[in-house]
């Protein structure tokens, strides 16, 4: 009963299922173990971003710079390996995401400006940093060490999807069961009530931005590891996918509502869609168009759902 009601509130699960069935029937290569593991891997990359972004949006903010952070961290992890070794390079890459998250969070809280603007500017600035570091070229890994990491298995899943799944569970737990998580909902629900109640609003907001930056950096490292190379334009438009996934997953853009389970489902549904379109030989030119339409559709959905819940009150 509870789960039925959950599905009604989160139609994205049904969407995912529908797409799954549709592509299974219409294409012969979709429903194969190889392809499905491919889908899982594809969704893991955007999934890492969306997972980090969900708490930020629940607290009533947004981070549009995540795609650029992917570019920067992927370049750093490849480029730094020669000088300071693999572990050091990974640490620097993750550190960059953490710092940029901190920077965004502080700018939003200290300046009291919409996070849209701050992170939109951050997006272009971070991309600039990535180009500044790597130049206009692509970097290649000096050896297979990084790539080998991605081949590690935890049970049947490889490392990157495993990190994604773990992150989903951890973040869900964090939002439900920790003081930070509950305060995140409170801030998104009513910032003034939270301030009045003495919640250290800025601290929680900044923490969420830091987590988001870190997850973006993990995504960048994962991407670089998988391809054994990096260019500063990696992760372009990923922020769009991530926002689409979060909103489609039922998290309210205004904040206060949402969860990781919905985000997970949406990430999965989008990956199935993308993969399925590939299978149907839809030209890659159309992908940004479909993405943009999906974003607008998610936005309309967000409005409708919230209007519905408002009249229900």
């Amino acid at each position: 009963m509870e789960s039925v009601r959950y599905l009604a509130r989160n139609p994205v699960w049904l969407l995912g299922l529908g797409l799954f069935i549709f592509f299974s029937v219409t294409t012969s290569h979709f429903l194969t173990a190889y392809n499905l593991s491919n889908v899982l891997f594809q969704c893991a990359l955007v999934g890492l971003l969306a997972t980090g972004l969900t708490p930020v949006i629940i607290s009533g903010n947004i981070d549009l710079s995540v795609g650029a952070v992917v570019g920067l961290s992927s370049c750093l992890v490849i480029g730094m390996q020669e000088q300071i070794g693999l572990a050091g390079a990974i640490a620097v890459a993750l550190g960059s995401g953490l710092c940029l998250g901190l920077l965004n969070g502080l700018a939003v809280e200290r300046l009291g400006v919409s996070s849209f603007i701050i992170t939109l500017a951050g997006m272009i600035g971070t991309r600039g940093l990535a180009f500044l570091y790597a130049g206009d070229t692509s970097l290649s890994a000096i050896d297979e060490q990084l790539y080998d990491l991605t081949m590690l298995h935890v049970g049947p899943v490889t490392l990157i999807p495993f990190i994604f799944l773990t992150a989903v569970l951890c973040f869900q737990w964090m939002l439900r069961r920790t003081v930070h998580g509950r305060n995140t909902y409170a801030i998104g629900g009513s910032r003034s009530a939270s301030t009045n109640a003495g919640i250290p609003v800025s601290r929680h907001v900044v923490i969420n931005f830091i987590i988001c930056g870190l997850m973006a950096a993990i995504c960048g490292v994962a991407m670089a590891a998988n391809l054994g190379a990096a260019t500063p334009s990696y992760g372009k438009d990923y922020e769009l996918w991530a926002v689409i996934a979060v909103v489609l997953g039922g998290t309210r853009l205004r904040g206060g509502k949402g969860d990781l389970i919905g985000t997970f489902a949406a990430v999965l549904a989008l990956a199935i869609l993308r993969n399925g379109l590939n299978m149907l030989h839809v030209a890659p030119f159309y992908i940004p168009g479909i993405m943009g339409l999906a974003l607008i559709a998610a936005l309309v959905l967000d409005r409708q759902l919230n209007r519905a819940s408002k009249t229900a009150e």
């Binding site: 409170a186 009530a193 206060g256």
Partner: peptide, 15 residues
Amino acid sequence: SLVPELSVAENIFLG
């Protein structure tokens, strides 16, 4: 001055 999305208990002890 409450958070509508949270439960009664959470609102009582908010902060």
